[in-house]
Design a protein around this nucleic acid. Structure first.
Lengths: 161, 161
DNA sequence: TTCTGATAGTTCAACATGCAAAGTAATAAT
DNA sequence: ATTATTACTTTGCATGTTGAACTATCAGAA
C-alpha cells in the first residue's frame, strides 16, 4: 500500500472517529449531535444568531430555525429580538444549556487535548505543521478559522436531562 | 495562541472542508452524501455486503438496508444472493453506478491526492506519520499507548530494507 | 413620504437519515 | 432435532434538511 492510500485511510479514521464519538457524547447529554453543535456555537460567546449558526454549520437558515425551536423547547436557549436590528434574532444560552455543554464537551477536545499535550515538544510542532498543511490542501477557500472552545472541566454525568 | 488550539483549529478545518465538499460533490451526482458513500464502498472492489457497509459507515444494518433499496431503485446497485452463504446479500455495482462514482469521486481523493503526491518524499512521510498518530489518538477507545513516534519511524517508512 | 429591493427569520411540505423492534431465512452448534 | 446465531429486511417513529412561500424589518431612491 502506498503512502497516498495510507494517508487517506488515516484521514478517514480521523473523520469517522470524530463523527461517531460526537454522536455518543451528544447522546450522553440527551441531545443529538446536531443539537449539541448548535448549543456549542451559542455557548462560545454566550449568544449568537441563526445566520451565524447556519454559516458555521454549513446548513440553511431553515434548518437552523427548526433546531433552535427544539432547543428553545428544551429551555436550553432563549430567543430575543435584537434591539439594534429588529430583523435579527438574538440567541442566548440559558443556565441549563450551559450545563449541558459543560457536561458534553466537544468531541475533539475530550479525546485529543490531553494526549496532544502529553507529547514531547518536537512532536507537537510536527503535528501542528502537518495538520495545517493538510487543512490548507483541503479547504481551498480561505475561510476564517473557527474559534476554539475554552476547555472547562471535563466531567461525565451520564444523565439525560 | 498555543499549539493545542492551533492543531484543533486545523483539525476542524479538515473535518469541515471534507464534509461540506462531500455534500457538494454528491449533489452534483444527483445523490446525497450518504448514498454516494455507500456507492463508493461498493465501487472499491466492485462488490460488497450490507454488513461490511454498515461497519465501515458506523450505522446499523437497518439503515444500510434502506439505502441499498434506494440505490437499487436507481439502478446503481444490484442485489444477489450469495452462493457461498445464502443468508448474505452480494451487492454489485452496475455500469451506471460506476459512472456515478467516476463522475463524483471521493471528496478527499479529489482535493487531496494530487497535492499530496506533488510533495517531496520526506514531507509525504511526515504527513503519513502524523495523520496515523492523530487517528490513533482519536479512534482508539482502549488506547493501548502506541509507541511514540521517532524520527526513525519517519525516515524508515516506505523505504526499502 | 412612499416605493423598491435586500436582509433576517419562520413555517410548511416533502424527502432523507437513523434506529429499535419484529420478522424471515439460512447456517452453526449441541 | 432443537436451539442459537447470523445476515438481512421491513416497519414505525423521531430527527434532519431543504426549497418555496411568507412576514417583518431595514436601507436607499425618487
Amino acid at each position: 500500500m502506498d503512502r497516498t492510500d495510507t494517508s487517506l485511510i488515516a484521514l478517514r479514521r480521523i473523520l469517522r472517529a470524530t463523527e461517531l464519538y460526537g454522536r455518543d457524547l451528544a447522546r450522553d447529554a440527551g441531545l443529538t449531535a446536531v443539537q449539541l453543535r448548535v448549543l456549542q456555537i451559542v455557548a462560545e460567546k454566550g449568544h449568537s444568531t441563526p445566520t451565524e449558526i447556519a454559516t458555521r454549520m454549513g446548513v440553511s437558515q431553515a434548518t437552523v430555525s427548526v433546531l433552535i425551536k427544539k432547543l428553545e423547547g428544551f429551555s436550553l436557549l432563549e430567543r430575543h429580538k435584537s434591539l439594534a436590528d429588529r430583523r435579527q434574532t438574538d440567541l442566548e444560552i440559558t443556565r441549563t444549556g450551559r450545563a449541558k455543554v459543560d457536561v458534553a464537551p466537544d468531541a475533539l477536545q475530550q479525546r485529543y487535548v490531553a494526549q496532544f499535550e502529553a507529547l514531547p515538544d518536537w512532536e507537537q510542532s510536527m503535528i501542528v505543521a502537518v495538520l495545517e498543511r493538510v487543512a490548507g490542501m483541503l479547504d481551498a477557500s480561505d475561510m476564517p478559522a473557527e474559534p476554539v472552545l475554552t476547555t472547562g472541566d471535563i466531567l461525565r454525568h451520564d444523565q439525560p436531562g
